[in-house]
Design a protein around this nucleic acid. Structure first.
Lengths: 347, 347
DNA sequence: TCCCGAAGTTCGATTTAAATG
DNA sequence: GCATTTAAATCGAACTTCGGG
């Protein structure tokens, strides 16, 4: 391995000068262009690459940002990760990406590993609240700028990026309503999930504003669970239950796309055609939504943008820390967007 | 930050002794239990965590393995990553995970970043051959144990893990044949992909062995492309083309699951019901395959296992390097497995 | 010789303070 | 004082060498 001393020897200068030139440090303005050129060509010729361990040991910087996701096999994660990765790539930070599998023990162990590697910032993608609030709150104090995607800790000093769930719920309802649907079945999210209640609140107030009353026998709740697949299974079972109740409905509003997929499967089993006999709308717009048959109408979370936003919050935070400025937590809410495909149709 | 010297001071011993005790180095056997205990409790009380930069600088070890995937939004990647991540977690290595987006420039830049961070091993997940063979071959020489998943470089000193595509092709054919299908349409993989030809070879020889002749007007090829979504689009378009030709067929064997999804969509548009009027079989068994309506019959690649296998190859390689033993490239082929679901049915 | 512990060197870079003309 | 360069200290842990009992 070629070291800075090798470059010094080859160029005829001291390692100090080499360091100053190659890093374009403040002192570099005193160094004549000829010297610079010599050093640079020597470095290039030798293929010099600075040892990051040595550099980080001295400078206390790692140029690394930790990224934690709750479950990488969940297509929801995947798309946000794209945004995170892209932004980090552009900011010259390397992501230290870990998958927590919705297990608290993994969360703790990976967090330790990241701290050991001196991450300068942290992005946590966690819509399911499996994580230890206290641990995260500690982070806020630890001078490691942190952003949460998909949930919010208003009380603490941790930034967040979330969708406007209320808007999303309203948009979905407006869509179904405008297509003429009045008898709508609902599969709501689990109560422990912070996304659930604002979506429902919007549905409720929309219905109220239109003088539509909601049939409580057409409202079911997703059970608490942390497996992403389970929301498909639950969607399937709850829709079967819905059909069994023999209350007529012309549309289903599912908590998320996975639930919607389960619902479509159950409808199809019961020989109810989508969208001819029943419309279905999801939430999220995960990748498979566009590939499904029928393709799924859904409320899209701008996932790439959310990832980028979280990164820019964290990177700003890192810069603030470097300049000894105060870092304040920010809370962003982004607007979702209706994507009309084949699974909904007017009556 | 608390350093080893702080622990030394607090426990009343020198930093040497602290280092020996906490690392359980060979010399530790001479040190009396009482000393050890004192040092350990002091370390715990202070919350001492060794600085990895300092440690790595000295020891030349990073306990990090690089992982490169071609596209994280591809569900094929996702599932293999699970296997990789799990095994790495158990081996106490931290993955440095990067997503190359099927771009060569990213591949090169991330490779450099990884090398700079002194990865001890590398796992590359790349079924699409976008990558620079030469760069990878260099890796083989660079004493960084490397494993390729999904393609093979027999000529070079790089290990690999692949599926037995020939077996997979045969299994799929046997399934369709046993259901009574004789007029089968094929959407083959792009020629540049190493998976394509063995699968087709197996189909061909199976047909030959049964005296079945393949109608060339029912055989189409996926175009060359690196977008995962495109295989859905291509599957859709090619199936439309197939229908337009008005040659009757009772089953479609698609190159992979994405292609199969596209085919199902096209069939459904043409009011051809799956599986009642046409069976469809895929390859891979990506997560959405089980969620699709109808759920997809497919040839499953044991993806988690493939990821684990690649990791164990790399970890073995790392250990060999540490003990100055020779590292030989190994080439594993794993057996795929038929998963029968709803998209195929007997005539 | 065996056991225990410490002083000092090393890894490869950055940075401070200082030395030249 | 100014432009140009460098010796030496430093970061935190690991390892080599050595000395005392």
């Amino acid at each position: 391995m070629v070291t800075i001393r090798d470059v010094a020897k080859a160029s005829g200068f001291s390692s100090t000068t080499v360091s100053i030139v190659l890093n374009n440090a403040p002192l570099a303005r005193y160094i004549p262009p000829i010297t610079k050129k010599k050093i640079e060509t020597a470095a290039k010729k030798l293929g010099y690459r600075p040892n990051l361990f040595a550099r980080s040991l001295r400078s206390k910087r790692s140029h690394t940002v930790g990224v934690m996701v709750f479950d990488m096999t969940d297509p929801y994660c995947t798309r946000i990760l794209r945004g995170i990765e892209n932004s980090l790539y552009q900011s010259n930070f390397l992501p230290l990406l870990t998958d927590v599998h919705n297990e608290r023990s993994r969360f703790e162990r990976y967090l330790e590993m990241m701290l050991d590697r001196r991450i300068e910032g942290l992005v946590i993608l966690a819509n399911w609240l499996f994580l230890d609030i206290n641990l995260i709150a500690d982070l806020g104090k630890s001078s490691i700028p942190t952003a949460l995607i998909g949930c919010e800790l208003r009380t603490h000093s941790v930034s967040s990026v979330t969708v406007d769930n209320e808007l999303g719920g309203r948009v979905a309802m407006e869509h179904l309503y405008s297509l003429g649907h009045r008898k709508i079945a609902f599969i709501r999210g689990p109560k422990s999930l912070s996304d659930s209640s604002p979506r429902w609140k919007a549905v409720h107030s929309f219905a109220h504003s239109k003088g539509l009353d909601l049939d409580s026998r057409l409202i079911l709740d997703l059970p608490e669970s942390r497996e992403p697949i389970s929301s498909f299974d639950a969607g399937y079972k709850l829709t079967e239950e819905l059909i069994k109740r023999r209350r007529s409905f012309t549309a289903i509003m599912a908590f998320d796309d996975m639930t919607a997929f389960g619902a479509i499967r159950a409808l199809s089993k019961a020989e109810i055609r989508v969208p001819e006999q029943c419309s279905v709308i999801g939430f999220d717009d995960v990748v498979p939504a566009a590939l499904y048959t029928p393709s799924l109408t859904t409320v899209r979370q701008p996932m790439e943008a959310m990832g980028s936003l979280a990164v820019s919050i964290v990177v700003d935070g890192i810069n603030s820390v470097l300049e000894n400025r105060e870092v304040a937590a920010v809370h962003h809410q982004v607007a979702p967007e209706l994507v009309v495909r084949e699974s909904t149709r007017s009556l």
